[in-house]
Design a protein around this nucleic acid. Structure first.
Lengths: 189, 189
DNA sequence: CGTCTATTTGAATGTACTCAAAAGCGGTGG
DNA sequence: CCACCGCTTTTGAGTACATTCAAATAGACG
């Protein structure tokens, strides 16, 4: 079960057996049912989550009761309310399971200790956040530049594994359009 | 002149005098006239830039010849084509001075050496990219959630220092609307 | 003063939105 | 196995808003 995470780490850094053990020792394993909330607005966020199995979303619920999905996460993805996590602000987002899920959690202060002891881990998380940054930058570029049909096609291409696991109205929301509009543009394809 | 950058670093990490010297020794100083291009599409991107003075933009030029501004940078900001920089891809963006500017440049491979020698710097750049990530996440959330008037007002609030230094049609582009639309909504305020 | 660029205004167009309703789909219980 | 219920998707009609294109005005700079 932890092999999955070690394989994930090994793409960026090489760890000795002791370092692997040290890392695994600070993780906690959780299972959640569909609709469970890992994070709710207002809470302190001390953990980020690595998805072993299942599917989760991070979303903002506005005053009008409208959900705005910021992130999907399936196997091998990390999820949290990262703003709250990094800046020690109260959460603004919900993080919710949309399938029964299994995750590993990583505590912020324990992780920061680890950074000091073994800088290699700081390297790993720097690379991880850098890639996430680039992905967001491309998402913005895409929304500035392209029409919704193109963005939908790109989404399908980019996240083929999400097909069938997330509802179209959630994809619509992620893309910043209404479910009706998405339905209409899908018909034209 | 380097004090500005050291002050910037000291917000996140504490450096000894030797470490400060070591860091300064790997920087290069450049001055550029308005309209100079620091990066053009297709080039290798080996440097990121810290702005000492002036104002720069990073933008994507699409097939229709339309500019799409991804980032502004003034004093104490970093700018580059970060995707190209981090992933060693050819540049997709232009980075251009919109005022006469003075910058310090930091070479990628030299910086990575430094990370190994002094992990503290890896920490600094991890924190820097993390904040940039959070800012982008908020930009996306804002574009999913809010109408263009609200987004314009937020922009003015968030970057008061850009007032008067960047043209309205550039702000319009950054917000993803046309200059005409921006002009109309400004009239209503 | 004249030129070039940026901003504003106007009118027509189009795209995506809202609201409402129907159709499709899946799961549950009789 | 079928009927029903809730939820998702589709369809339709009317509306609002941003866009395009064109032209006029305003500002900056040599």
């Amino acid at each position: 079960m932890y092999k999955q995470l070690l394989r994930h780490l090994s793409k960026d850094i090489e760890l000795s057996l002791e370092e692997e053990q040290e890392f695994l020792s600070i993780l906690e394993h959780h299972t959640f049912l569909k609709k469970s909330l890992l994070i709710q607005p207002g809470q302190k966020v001390t953990k980020e989550y690595f998805v072993l199995k299942g599917c989760l979303i991070a979303y903002y619920l506005d005053k009008a009761g409208q959900k705005h999905i910021i992130q999907f996460a399936i196997e091998d993805w990390w999820i949290s309310d990262f703003e709250a996590f990094f800046n020690a602000h109260p959460a603004q987002l919900h993080v919710e399971c949309i399938e029964d899920s299994e995750v590993l959690s990583l505590d912020k202060s324990i992780l920061e200790d680890l950074y000091f002891r073994i800088p290699k881990f700081e390297r790993f998380f720097r690379l991880k956040i850098t890639r996430a940054f680039v992905a967001l930058r491309n998402r913005i570029l895409s929304s500035l530049q392209k029409d919704s049909k193109t963005r939908y096609l790109e989404f399908c291409e980019q996240y083929p594994n999400l097909q069938g696991r997330v509802a179209n109205y959630q994809i619509a929301d992620y893309l910043g359009i209404t479910p009706e509009s998405l339905s209409r543009l899908r018909k034209k394809i």
